[in-house]
Simulated assay, not measured.
Amino acid sequence: MTQRTWLITGVSSGFGRHMTEQLLARGDRVIGTVRKAGALQDLAEAHGDRLALHLLDVSDAAAVQQFVEAAFASHPRIDVIVSNAGYGLFGAAESFTDEQIRHQIDTNLVGSIQLVRSAISHLRAQGGGRVLQLSTYGGQAASPGGSLCHAGKWGIEGFIDAVGQEVAGFRIEATLVEPGGARTEFRYGSSRLGPWIEAYAGTPVAGIHKIIEEAKLLPIGDPARMVALMIASVDQHPAPKRLALGSDAYTAMHKALTTRLAELEAQRELAFSTDFPAGA
């Protein structure tokens, strides 16, 4: 088994923690970011210098760039960049405050963009590498109550799609990971709600509020199994452009993509009708 060095944002919980545990167990090195000092102290004590932890708020673009520069300067090679840090913001679009909107986009979209773009020159210089960008099935299928989450994830999917094509000639490959619901702290720990507006009583938005406030509905996905497949994907060549994880993710994305394709095909004649005539 090839031993690698991984740079992972958001390792204190959820997929980040599961990934860190699995990688350290197999002998790899992890450079991980946390929001609070002392996080993952148990793993740091158990694995010594194979786990390097750094405080980082990914919504701080300058700090992200400085962190990436320092990480590559202090390690001879970083094989895999995992853009994982993020959180959910749910509710009616009109309910969110300007501050909530900015922080969500700065964290889930701009932070991921800055991480990846800061790493590209280093990956190029070392002759290649792999990027894993955590998205969600919500990067392909939209649901009421998730507008801000979808804004970030649809945005980062377009970014990674394009960047993957830009850097393919440098042996840098990128994969978008699209999990469904998983039994991590994401849904009932890090997720946040916009202010409640009574007009939305009885609508799907009310359902989202109820699910998060009651914290009773268990997601179907096993995060340990999902993370094992994320790690295994790094050995695939060419890299999968997308990795759907979970039956709920597959079902939701299949329905959304099938519907969108049918709608597009129905507009074929209309679309072609706007071209200049041949030879014009």
Rank of each mutant, 00 (worst) to 15 (best):
I120Q: 05
F170E: 14
I231M: 01
H237G: 00
V34Q: 06
R17M: 05
G155K: 09
P238C: 04
V110N: 09
Q22I: 05
L51A: 10
Q41G: 15
A141H: 05
G207S: 02
V163P: 02
R29P: 00
P219R: 06
Q104V: 04
E45C: 07
R117N: 05
E157C: 07
D49A: 15
R171A: 14
T184N: 10
A244C: 09
F15W: 04
L217E: 14
A46C: 11
A168D: 14
P179R: 02
S233H: 10
H103P: 01
E173N: 02
H18A: 09
G128T: 03
D235F: 14
H150G: 09
L43I: 12
A125N: 11
V116G: 00
A119N: 02
T203K: 13
R26I: 08
V163S: 07
Y87K: 06
A37Y: 02
L23M: 08
A92G: 07
G246L: 00
R225L: 08
P179E: 02
D248G: 14
G14W: 00
A71W: 03
V116T: 10
V64T: 12
A39H: 14
T184G: 12
P240T: 07
E166H: 11
Q100Y: 09
A280Y: 15
D161L: 00
G155I: 11
Y188E: 04
E185N: 13
K153L: 08
Y188I: 08
D28G: 00
G152C: 06
A63L: 07
A85Q: 03
A92Y: 06
T175S: 15
A256P: 05
V131L: 08
I160Q: 05
Q41R: 15
G38S: 02
S59G: 12
A278R: 12
Q3G: 07
G27F: 07
D275K: 04
T136Y: 11
S118V: 10
Q66S: 13
L134D: 04
Q236C: 12
W6C: 05
V131Y: 01
A201M: 02
I220R: 12
H237S: 13
H209G: 01
A85V: 02
T184Y: 05
G164L: 07
A266V: 07
W196T: 04
G146M: 09
S118C: 09
H150P: 03
P238G: 04
A206R: 10
A256Q: 09
E263Q: 13
R268T: 12
T175M: 11
T9E: 04
G145W: 01
P76F: 01
F67A: 05
L53G: 02
A215N: 05
L218E: 14
G86Y: 03
G145L: 11
R117I: 10
A249L: 12
E99Y: 11
A62M: 04
L264A: 14
L218M: 14
S95C: 13
V30F: 00
I231P: 02
A280C: 14
A278V: 13
Y87C: 03
A119H: 01
L193P: 00
D98N: 09
A151Y: 12
L261H: 15
V205F: 07
